[in-house]
Write a protein that binds this DNA or RNA. Structure first.
Lengths: 223, 223
DNA sequence: AAAATAATTTAGGCATACCTAAATTATTAT
DNA sequence: ATAATAATTTAGGTATGCCTAAATTATTTT
């Protein structure tokens, strides 16, 4: 029935999940932007995904798309594979965290269930990937987190970096240089309410001033 | 120029290489049979491969196909990746040798050069895959071998199994059960000229009678 | 409310890569 | 040499998934 889920469809489902789970609308335009294709192409695909049996998305003209339970299941399966692959590329092959996303994007569509099972076991069934993104369990439940944006940290408050929500390789390398990686302890030394700049003390490093463009990509847990 | 080499084209090139390097003709029918598609589809693709710039195959109507230097290079690249992947699935993820072919067939089309480099290094730049197939070097030279068919072994002769030239999972499991895997020492106890059966002593095992259908798939080096 | 702008959809096309059926070419047997 | 068979090619068609241009719908501004 629902085994006609092509790599392309997987990418759509993953992207819809990424938008809606983030509170954003999975609109034609937003999907087109994230997928790097024309809006018209998205319209065509959403119509198709909604007319499959079972439907993978709920779609009404000019109203954007939402995943059906079947669509969400398929999305979580791909997301699980992607994040396990990222973790495993780092742990097992020594990849740097800025290079794993691209590789995982291709591998996620071709690995077998056995492959998934083996790397999950080899990694000890991790709950987060190298960027701190939660990894859905084998029965496709997304772990809940208490991550809050670094932008909400104020003078004197201490926290631990939990997640870095960006895929851009140069930015990831920059963050690594600052020590702003999952697990790092940070203290807010100062906060400028005008430009949103945060002066951060990353454990074991000199203080650094970080702008809101970066802070909004970093998620923490307060201590 | 020649970066429009799709996964499909890679499969054609790999298959043509497999036939011609084996002394067989890369005929339309043979390719169709190996690729599991209709002969007419092969004709269309061969015409296309021959008309690319640079051409990947030499093709003349009713004459089958042969790889150009560019085509052979692309074929060796895919074969290298396939065999490295097989080795690495066994070594690093604990796959059994009968399961790796299928997985490698999908992965070979998507891994990056970095991935290839990393697994080659992690494996110590192996020269054979788990079935004993030679792995082309990083500069795409196929290692030469002295492998001869097990069918040529005669009473009293000793040899080492070097290669098992079949992909069929049930047969591979059967051979593993007999100990007929690369590296195994064998002695021919008897040979029947009528049915081609060979009675083999595999080191550390009871003697076994093996028919020509199996023997022709196994390649050895005489001691 | 009307006009302007933004978002979305429809329509018509293209490329890849497969298919079947019919036509052609090559090979083998009589 | 002719007929039968086998191999191959041509022709026309399908499905996926993208594109652009034009049309439509929704939203915002005046």
């Amino acid at each position: 029935m629902a085994d006609n889920i092509t790599p392309n469809i997987q990418d759509y489902l993953k992207t819809i999940y990424g938008l809606t789970s983030n509170g954003e609308e999975a609109s034609t335009t937003a999907l087109a932007a994230r997928l790097g294709i024309a809006p018209a192409s998205v319209t065509g695909m959403l119509q198709k995904l909604a007319s499959l049996t079972p439907p993978l998305v709920i779609y009404r003209k000019h109203q954007g798309a939402a995943l059906t339970p079947e669509g969400e299941k398929a999305a979580l399966e791909v997301i699980r594979r992607h994040r396990l692959l990222e973790a495993w590329l780092v742990e097992s092959l020594g990849y740097s965290w800025d290079a794993v996303h691209e590789e995982a994007c291709k591998l996620e569509h071709v690995i077998s269930e056995e492959f998934e099972t083996r790397i999950a076991a080899a990694l000890g069934h991790p709950v987060r990937d190298p960027h701190g993104d939660p990894i859905p369990s084998a029965d496709l439940v997304m772990p809940s987190t208490n991550d809050i944006p670094l932008t909400s940290l104020r003078e004197g408050e201490k926290a631990v970096v939990r997640r870095v929500g960006c895929k851009d390789a140069p930015l990831l390398r920059h963050l690594e240089g600052l020590g702003l990686v999952p697990g790092a302890g940070v203290t807010a030394l100062a906060h400028s309410p005008f430009d949103g700049n945060l002066t951060l003390q990353v454990a074991g490093r000199p203080p650094a001033v970080v702008g809101p463009a970066i802070c909004s990509q970093i998620f923490i847990e307060r201590l």
